[in-house]
Design a protein around this nucleic acid. Structure first.
Length: 377
DNA sequence: GAGACGTGGAG
DNA sequence: TCTCCAAGTCT
């Protein structure tokens, strides 16, 4: 069969593997970080931590993880929770589909697996949000099964060990590395070995300035021997986020603020925010928003252009014009996507970052106005 | 395979 | 300011 051809890799010998395992595990035993999800091998805890850690730094995850485990200590607590509470616990972490998928998978585990995280690759991989890396991580760390868990750290470290110049953003490269990684995992400590590999990537074999001089496996590293560790891994550059002009409204009436729920699909799916819409570059943002609101039966007594905030997503750059307005009346019936909420009850909602920025701007300006008024009276 | 999907920190 | 990234998955 015609398979895509990869750069040939010398299969490592038994001696080399043995030495690598000893150096890496010895180092890990000495310096591994004392992380909250490393206190035991509860598969649920490992699972939650691995989902949170997807594309997210350890330091960012820790406080979220602690709060999440306090709120949802077992897979059953999570399965039975209100979705809004789960999303609220995820507020600010990003990639919110992770939270929805995690809860959906928790329900699945309770209904079809008796509340026990499945321990076979096929079953666990069927759960929402669990891909090849996370499946491998949970199975090896929680159940000590000998399976690869290849993430960005592992790909970086291994591409340096073996001077692999394949583009690591390709699926085929990840699969090649999984094969190679499997040959390296010791029989007795698969979970520790996988974690040690990632720990090395996080603490020593870093993307920019790898600390080769203090690396426990520097003798095993081919890139280091050739002095080309900085050139690896090879990775295709991501496109910069495209600018998108937006209008967002801070619309009030008798101490309440108008909220809008975003569509179930796409960016910030299903989350609450301020009423917002895309605009073409040249359009008048104030008119655009007031038109939209009046089509909902919401008419404004006054409106003010407050300013701009910017928020960068991984693939989009929102350039947000923030407008403040006072609604005349709110008695018309709103669709489910809209809701008037008292200002002191806003904290019950899970807002993505971009709306917090817009709200901060609005409240700053509003406070300033109030201060001026206060001086006048 | 390529693009969607968040956020914050570092250099 | 800008670029790259951080324990990826889904469509």
């Amino acid at each position: 069969m015609a398979r895509k051809k990869h750069q040939p890799i010398q299969p490592p010998g038994k001696e080399w593997i043995r030495s690598l395992q000893n150096h890496l595990l010895g180092w890990y035993d000495e310096v591994k970080r004392d992380l909250p999800w490393r206190k035991d091998q509860d598969p649920y805890k490992i699972w939650v931590s691995e989902i949170m850690l997807q594309q997210t730094r350890v330091d960012t995850v820790i406080p979220y993880y602690l709060r999440f485990m306090e709120k949802f200590p077992t897979v059953r607590d999570l399965a039975e929770a209100d979705e809004d509470d789960v999303i609220k616990a995820w507020e600010g972490l990003g990639y919110y589909s992770r939270a929805r998928n995690l809860q959906a998978a928790a329900k699945e585990v309770c209904e079809r697996h008796g509340g026990v995280v499945p321990r076979d690759p096929a079953s666990i991989s069927r759960l929402k949000g669990i891909g090849p890396y996370t499946a491998g991580a949970i199975l090896s760390i929680a159940y000590n099964l000998r399976v690869p868990a290849v993430d960005g750290n592992v790909m970086r470290v291994m591409s340096r060990w073996f001077v692999l110049k394949e583009d690591v953003t390709k699926v085929s490269t990840r699969r090649l590395l999984e094969e190679l990684d499997l040959a390296l995992i010791p029989e007795d400590r698969p979970g520790d070995f996988n974690q040690a590999l990632m720990e090395l990537g996080a603490l020593v074999c870093t993307p920019i300035h790898p600390a080769c001089d203090s690396c426990p496996v520097r003798q095993e590293c081919k890139a280091r021997a050739l002095g080309i560790q900085h050139e690896l891994p090879v990775k295709k550059k991501a496109k910069p986020p495209a600018p998108v002009p937006m209008v967002v409204g801070w619309i009030r009436n008798h101490g309440r603020v108008l909220l809008e729920r975003r569509p179930e699909e796409g960016l910030l799916a299903g989350m609450w925010g301020l009423p917002s819409l895309e605009r073409e570059g040249a359009e008048n943002p104030v008119g655009l928003l007031t038109n939209r609101l009046s089509s909902l039966g919401i008419h404004l007594a006054s409106e003010t252009l407050l300013g701009e905030v910017e928020h960068v997503f991984s693939h989009r750059r929102w350039q947000v014009t923030v407008i403040e307005g006072e609604a005349i009346s709110t008695e018309s019936s709103l669709s489910d996507a809209f809701r008037w909420v008292k200002e002191d009850e806003l904290e019950a909602y899970a807002f993505p970052k971009v709306y917090h920025k817009a709200m901060r701007l609005a409240q700053q300006k509003t406070d300033k106005e109030a201060a001026v008024q206060g001086r006048l009276f």
